[in-house]
Design a protein around this nucleic acid. Structure first.
Lengths: 220, 220, 220, 220
DNA sequence: TATGAATGAGGGTTCATTCAT
DNA sequence: TATGAATGAACCCTCATTCAT
């Protein structure tokens, strides 16, 4: 109701009435994200989604052709900002490899600390078997861009002599793995370090190992 | 090994050759593991499990009281050897930290390369939301033992001066994370490095980084 | 919309003529009553109820959460008028004990002659073992009121000197038993006196014995 | 009569061993009676009967061709003594009508106080709809003999002048109804008079009313 | 005579989807 | 645009009955 774009008389024809729709699809996706995360896709009924979104069951089908389309829509919505942001960070690598990696890890940690952001990859991981398109969507939109970007970035570091002559593709796993497993252990199994999740502490510890190694004396 | 009743001719009645039961629960679990992995728990019907195991639908219920019990049974079966083996390796740490970690990673890679072994944690991860007992079972039987064991092992390395003064709990994530994410990317998203999965190459690359660091020059 | 809007042009909105719901629960209960009576609860499937009520199987679950709830609903529906009517009759006892008892028996006979009314107690009796709540419902709503009311009524008759000094509680069984057993023999075993069920003849014969005794000469 | 043929030494070979069978059918019927009574026929599985009787499921089918045959067998077994005893009592009517009726009622009360005896008519009543043969069996074997016998007995009393000129057929209901309803209320609804079931008290109260009437003054 | 593994039909229940309003 | 009654296809599970041993 306060939407009324006609408050501004300059706005030419003004789309007649436009009830208040438009926000509806997003409300449905929000509701579905929460429910899919908590109960899983299979154990969430369309009726639950509708109720949580404040609509009737039938209305959901005005915006999405099927339950599966809701799942896909929810992933699609989350994908856009995701991929862009990661790419932007890496692309604009100013500073040393260590500085950029530090920045990227902290940024990812920050993003994934938002439950609504983390929700989507979690759902993707869970439902990817029953709905392979989901996995493909996520792959194409996020991983297919982010991983090569990181790989190239590592490769550049190696070529510039800043990094040892490691395999860039494999090294990406060493860079990202610890952070992701940290979130994983916490989210799925509730395994949290003694002092709390301590995302920053984890990243600091990881970066120190990543760049300087575990061994007390330097490399042989 | 004790099967062959004919090894000892004095053994009178000879167990008839066993009706055919006894192996049934395992056959059902095998069938279910494959189906749950491919289609997910929710999309697999008991009828499918029965058919895949070569029984009638009703017969499944002679061995498992419910479909969920099949899932739990499958996890329980996989848990026993898992936890034992990991623990044994770590407990019997002879040699330097680097040697033991190298050994453990290779052993895990070998085990997780067997699709039937990897299947269980994959299923656990997927179904843990809808069936939290599953996650708890796996946690209690595997992770609750393996992670503290590794943590203690790292701590000992730090105290002996072999490792830098890192946080042992967080460092476990740096040790295991890359391997697990490597498997993950391959299994869920089909993301495989250019030259193939190359588990050994990954571990070598990872170990080099883990102990010696990425930086071209030694630690500052 | 084309539903007879022309009956009364002045009648503004006219209740549309009711979708068709609203009556549904009663239709289902009617169908179930007949089927439960004829086949028993266990031998009646929800599909049969649905078909008899003119719906699909799933639709039954829009109105009742389970098959058992249908049984309970059917009893609950019958209970309300039952208990009220019996109580009202007894409470408003004007006239002699004999007149009131005569009236009550005839009223009960009339009510129980309606197969749909008799159906419910018959079902209750049959299903009370498998579904004890059913027996309790009927007990609480009907018997727990009717029997004490009759008992008090008999007691008043004794105290007023109209009746011999009998035990009121036990006498209630002498008052009601013959009528109930008469219906019972007819309904369950098909045992009917020579001249037909003859409910009125039975009541007359019973009342004569009840008040005046069987013995040819008066009491000793 | 053909029981224990080995008590007679003249009987030639004596059937070798004869495990201990012969008693098996009765054990099965005993077990089934208890279970049917407590849970109803439909909710009792053949496996339960077998377990309660101390046999395997399959063995039940060596003695009875179906679950329903167990039900019929159990009724058939109970019928024989039942009908005979009632008939004998009534046939040998020595003494006044009041004396005989008193005797019959007490005898019936005694018999029906044994839960195993009462069990059968209770089961018959419950399962007669789903298994009409059951009701017919009971009718033919018990009621078809007992009720006419009692009717004739009442008729004789009327004709001899000992009883008022009542309708004998209908009067049977007045004679038996109160006792049966008394048991009914107790067994099905748990409705018991204040001082306990008091079968004897009930019969005394009933007999007094039955023969002498409720009215304080004699018949008009 | 006895076992119990195995079958297969059927029942109760859920739920994505449709459609008249 | 919105509702929610209605459908129908599965799905999980039970159990009477059979049969190889």
């Amino acid at each position: 109701m306060t939407e009324s774009p006609d408050t501004d008389p300059t706005e030419a024809p003004a789309p007649k009435f436009r009830r208040r729709a438009d926000a509806r699809p997003d409300e449905i996706l929000d509701a579905a994200t929460g429910l899919f995360l908590e109960q899983g896709y299979a154990h969430t009924s369309v009726a639950q989604i509708a109720t949580a979104a404040g609509l009737s069951k039938g209305a959901v089908y005005l915006y999405f052709p099927s339950k599966q389309a809701v799942l896909e829509g929810l992933v699609a919505r989350a994908i856009q900002p995701m991929s862009m942001q990661v790419l932007a960070e890496v692309a604009a690598h100013s500073g040393s490899v260590r500085e950029v990696v530090t920045h990227v890890l902290h940024m990812m940690a920050a993003r994934l600390s938002d439950p609504m952001v983390l929700a989507v990859p979690r759902i993707v991981i869970r439902e990817s078997v029953a709905a392979p398109e989901i996995a493909r969507m996520y792959h194409d939109a996020v991983l297919a861009h982010a991983i090569p970007a990181l790989t190239s970035f590592i490769r550049a570091g190696v070529e510039s002599g800043e990094l040892k002559p490691v395999d860039p593709e494999l090294t990406v796993r060493s860079v990202m793995g610890p952070l992701l497993i940290h979130i994983f252990l916490s989210e799925i199994f509730g395994i949290v370090p003694d002092g709390g999740l301590g995302m920053d502490r984890l990243i600091d510890n990881h970066l120190s190992i990543l760049f300087d190694g575990l061994s007390a004396e330097g490399p042989p």
